[in-house]
């Protein structure tokens, strides 16, 4: 899948959880990714983040550490 698409989808998920109260937003982004994305998509996202995470929102970066 194209990185732009993967990044956009991940950032979109984070944009929702960023608005939620509490301090576990990164955890919740990670849970969402684990529940709805297949492992291949998660691995692709991780690989992309390892190479260059500048286009990922901070919450996605935090969440990646949890998946």
């Amino acid at each position: 899948m194209s990185h732009e698409k993967l990044t956009r989808m991940a950032n979109q998920i984070a944009s929702f959880f960023a608005t939620q109260p509490g301090s576990d937003q990164a955890q919740r982004v990670a849970e969402h990714l684990k529940d709805f994305w297949g492992p291949e998509m998660r691995d692709e996202l991780k690989a992309h983040a390892a190479a260059d995470d500048s286009d990922l929102s901070p919450l996605v970066r935090d969440a990646i550490l949890l998946i």
Partner: peptide, 8 residues
Amino acid sequence: EPGLRIPN
């Protein structure tokens, strides 16, 4: 593990 959705 979850599989692929249609767009995926």
